[in-house]
Design a protein around this nucleic acid. Structure first.
Lengths: 240, 240
DNA sequence: GGGGTAAATGAATCGCAATTCATTCTTGGC
DNA sequence: GCCAAGAATGAATTGCGATTCATTTACCCC
């Protein structure tokens, strides 16, 4: 058996077909004529991180890789889904690795920025933990493909993924630990359990809920579920 | 960059060298002469699941895949680690997939048998949950490579892995849910949280602790950690 | 010690897929 | 309309790696 025989080979034509119809395939696009002239590298450069094609490739990569996994997703499949030629991807990214890395990085960055922003107005350990849990659980609804990717590829042992994505996870845990520690100092959380253990428990519990939702395709009410998880966890760690 | 450039190419010679020295390499083995005659297919058939070589290949596969990941582990690397020729692997297994599948299956089976056995004498929801948590956390110490494998490959999106390993996870969750439900009926656990949410939280929390231990290489006291996790969880779900 | 059987070997096959690059298209200025 | 310059293309290159199979080796029985 060769290594791709377990790949579902279909399903991709749908989106490509959609692109064809909407006239976004290169060589067919005509309507974009007005978008470039008026903004001179201030907004959307032709090439580079800001361009529309750059984003399209990233999105396509996330979708394809979520469906088939990194190693079972040929660059050609990503290119096809994005509606560009294989070689075009290398005008925007250094390598196949680089596409995945970029996608994951930007998602984590967005998460951290969001949390950081909210923390400015949201004090109180309990509320902060609730907020994190909720955003984490909501990621499913925000971008299902990305959620799948996070559940599957981020834990890969492939060195290049493991190394850089580890930083992001550590950062998440770090944030939760600090909140927990502060709660302990303020006397609202019990002090006889390690903040590290609590942080990992929280991350793990939420991640597993998300994971199960992702794999079974089940949909849930992220607010209600987050509330339950946090309720159990906080009841478990509140000072008596 | 080609797809294996991130592979560490070394480290493998150590075990192979050990095999060479101990004379286990085929063509060098002489001492095994007495082991076969006296047991006529009752104990260790030459080929087949019981044989020593079969097990050696499985172990080698687990180690190599834990180090490099499934898709970055050529069959030739597994063969080398096991001290057999590439082709030999296909005398014992249908394909590369089959080797991994077998390894994972047997580990899960062992876990479930162990839990089932212990449940015969261990009644009481609290004790049962504690036991599961402990065995789960101990898996790290029992076989580190296998623990790494479980953390990395089982969650792969590669269809052939996802499909069959999903059953095992579902079974784990099922067992925990039943214990929780019984606890709720007996009135020791609160009834306003879903048994499913609790089960996923427990699995997720433990799995994440394990995962972090596996990735950071940190060692911990599995009994003490299990106690903390279960303490938090049970405090969180105990009836008030 | 010879012959048959089973096990093991590893070089050769065959197909796939990352990356490159010579060629073609597009565009904006003249 | 014509001409660079920059984008985009996709066929060709290249190398890897799963699997096969003709050949070799080990072992047993007579």
């Amino acid at each position: 058996m060769n290594r791709n025989s377990f790949l579902a080979k279909s399903c991709q034509f749908i989106r490509v077909a959609a692109l064809e119809i909407s006239g976004l395939r290169p060589g067919l696009k005509r309507k974009a004529k007005t978008t470039r002239p008026d903004l001179t590298k201030a907004e959307a450069p032709a090439t580079g991180p800001g361009s529309e094609k750059y984003q399209r490739i990233l999105d396509a990569a996330v979708e394809v890789i979520a469906e088939h996994g990194y190693f079972s997703s040929p660059v050609s499949a990503i290119a096809k889904r994005a509606g560009v030629a294989d070689g075009t991807i290398y005008l925007y990214f250094k390598s196949k690795d680089d596409v995945l890395r970029t996608a994951i990085d930007s998602t984590f960055d967005k998460f951290h920025r969001q949390v950081e922003e909210e923390f400015k107005t949201l004090h109180g350990p309990r509320e902060q933990l609730e907020y994190i849990a909720q955003v984490h659980l909501e990621s499913h609804a925000v971008n299902r493909s990305m959620a799948v990717l996070m559940q599957t590829e981020v834990r890969q042992s492939a060195k290049f993924i493991a190394e850089f994505s580890h930083h992001h996870l550590v950062k998440y845990i770090q944030v939760v630990r600090e909140v927990v520690r502060r709660g302990q100092q303020e006397g609202i959380f019990r002090r006889d359990v390690s903040d590290g253990v609590v942080a990992h428990c929280m991350f793990g519990a939420i991640d597993e809920l998300l994971s199960s939702a992702v794999f079974t395709g089940r949909v849930y009410d992220s607010k209600a579920t987050a509330a339950q998880v946090i309720d159990v966890l906080l009841s478990g760690i509140q000072a008596r």
